[in-house]
Write a protein that binds this DNA or RNA. Structure first.
Length: 527
RNA sequence: CGGGGCGUGGCUCAGCCUGGUAGAGCGCCUGGUUCGGGACCAGGAGGCCGGAGGUUCGAAUCCUCUCGCCCCGACCA
């Protein structure tokens, strides 16, 4: 309601953790000077300008929140349940991801459209499984213009239904197909439990919606877009993923089959980073989307839908960041390099700034000219915001023709000639992008194991939580049967997907039914 | 919906048990000294203590109701 009634960051939200690994803190325990009788005065210097970050080891979930907050990525909206405000540093990352994705969508012949936010409630009900899946998380508009609406509108949780309606209007003939559309939009899902970026009531995403003349063609589309997602995840976000098919129990409500990319976070939990659905003719039938084939026969279209959301940013953070804050792969970093100018005396300012400005232009770097902030404070500032490279430039460097380059991921610092700065920056960004992916791949490998009995799977995963970590991807033979999914859920894990590429030992007996299945599936705890 | 935490300057909190008319640190503003990994000194601005009602001479503090936020769980494209 009123701004005055909003609450503050507190309780478990706050990191009550007091920083270590900072500078040495002189602690003076003494009555200083004047009358503070028998009251010890605690003087801690220097006082930290920005809050510390809870170490991953202590509490991974709190660490994540600290990184998001301190990295200036987002903050809870507080005045709106489960919603967040995406701040400039976070939104800029989203814009980078949007660009990378959108370019690939265009390259695969998709066009962007925009559909209404409000969907007539009856639309949701036209596909039985779809409404069942989404009903619990719908927000509904019942009043507008000062009157109760005859038919309520739901705030879109996804647009398959409204797309179905318009596809029916737009498609008559096989010549109209395929229809390859994408929408960048916000959606609302009334989730019980929210976490910044990972699951929020309102989130930003893109949803691709396509219609095809045959199932084969639709399936090609489903897998093509899954590949696009995997490409962006690995080659832009440096986040390795496992492509695969969802089990029947886990598929999208209304789909024939769903496919996903699954990433592993630093605590070993899985994150579904993107999905691509084979909708078959389900929505075609529900919305009467028909076309006349070359042979003159009337048939329902075959549809697909696919999406990734701002959740990707959560995945990005939990893949690369460390106890000092955000770490961003260069390809998604809004600012790739920042120059921190250093000068003691006023007369040093001119020469330092002159060189800084010239280099900033060559490097495409931002100069931190903020007054009243010491260089040290600036280093911490950019470090927690995940800037890949920070340059230090002081009188010493101006005199020697050098500049100090500090790399965010490794913390490595080196003095280089100014003339080599441009080349060295490019080289460092490249190395960092590659290094982050390699590190994440290694972590995925190190935390993936096989299991050959349900007891073994349960032993490995039972105690895993988002806070304590210790998660693994457990590869086991398991039949795609909702009863088996239910058994896995008993210890709060789930079948993440059935990998498209089998990197293990091929067929084996299902650990629950004994039937032969063709490969191992990924079982893990997830967000 | 269950369990827990909590609403006090911009932020993090103390004060509440044992009512007496609001504090600290950070941040912010001014001036000066500083500046190579979170600087310091001095001065200053800023709060109807989430809301409503009650008890009382007097309420941030006690009582009742209410609104909301965060964390954990159940749920989950």
């Amino acid at each position: 309601m009123s701004p005055a009634s909003r609450t503050r960051r507190k309780g478990n939200m706050s990191s009550s953790y007091v920083g270590i690994g900072m500078s040495v803190l002189p602690v003076i325990l003494a009555p200083v000077g004047v009358p503070v009788p028998f009251r010890a005065r605690l003087v801690v210097t220097p006082l930290m300008a920005e809050s510390p970050i809870t170490p991953r080891e202590k509490d991974f979930a709190t660490w994540y929140q600290d990184v998001v907050l301190q990295g200036d990525m987002a903050e809870p909206a507080e005045i709106v349940k489960g919603c967040m405000v995406i701040k400039p540093n976070g939104y800029a990352v989203w814009e980078r991801l949007q660009r990378e994705l959108d370019d690939r969508f265009k390259a695969t012949n998709h066009q962007n459209i925009y559909l209404p936010l409000l969907i007539p409630e009856s639309f949701l009900k036209k596909e039985a499984e779809h409404v069942e899946g989404f009903a619990p998380e719908l927000a509904v508009v019942t009043h507008a213009g000062g009157k109760q609406l005859e038919e309520p509108y739901v705030l879109r949780p996804t647009s398959e239904t409204i797309v179905g309606h318009f596809f029916a209007k737009w498609i008559q003939s096989y010549r109209d197909l395929p229809l390859l559309y994408n929408q960048w939009a916000n959606v609302i899902r009334w989730e019980l439990r929210t976490r910044l970026f990972l699951r929020t009531t309102e989130f930003l995403w893109q949803e691709g919606h396509t219609a095809h003349a045959s199932h084969e063609e639709a399936m090609e589309e489903v897998l093509r877009m899954l590949d696009v997602y995997a490409d962006v995840a690995e080659n832009v976000m440096a986040m390795p993923v496992i492509k695969g098919r969802k089990t029947r129990a886990e598929k999208f409500a209304g789909a024939v089959h769903s496919y996903s990319i699954e990433a592993m976070m630093q605590n070993g939990l899985a994150l579904q980073a993107g999905t691509s659905h084979d909708l078959g003719q389900n929505f075609g039938k529900a919305f009467d989307v028909t076309f006349q084939s070359k042979e003159g026969k009337l048939d329902y279209v075959w549809q697909t839908s696919w999406g990734v959301s701002t959740r990707l940013i959560g995945g990005l953070i939990m893949t690369h960041s460390d106890d000092k804050g955000l770490v961003l792969p260069p390809k998604v970093a809004p600012r790739k390099a920042v120059i921190v100018p250093i000068f003691r005396k006023e007369e040093e300012r001119g020469p330092v700034m002159e060189v800084a400005e010239k280099l900033a232009k060559d490097l495409g770097a931002h100069i931190d000219t903020r007054d009243g902030q010491s260089p040290g404070a600036k280093f911490f500032h950019w470090e927690r915001r995940g800037v890949p490279v920070v340059f230090e430039l002081g009188p010493r460097d101006v005199a020697s023709g050098n500049i100090v380059l500090k790399r965010r991921d490794t913390g490595e610092k080196q003095v280089i000639p100014q003339t080599e700065a441009v080349a060295k920056l490019a080289e460092t960004l490249e190395a960092m992008q590659t290094g982050l992916l390699a590190k994440a791949k290694q972590r995925l490998k190190d935390n993936t194991c096989t299991a050959n009995s349900i007891g073994e799977v349960e032993d490995i995963l039972r105690a895993v939580t988002a806070e304590k970590g210790g998660g693994k991807f457990v590869m086991a033979h398991l039949k795609d049967d909702p009863a088996n999914d239910a058994r896995i859920k008993e210890f709060k894990a789930s079948i993440r997907n059935i990998p498209s590429v089998d990197e293990f030992d091929g067929p084996g007996k299902c650990i629950l039914t004994g039937e032969t299945v063709d490969r191992r599936v990924v079982i893990a705890k997830s967000y």
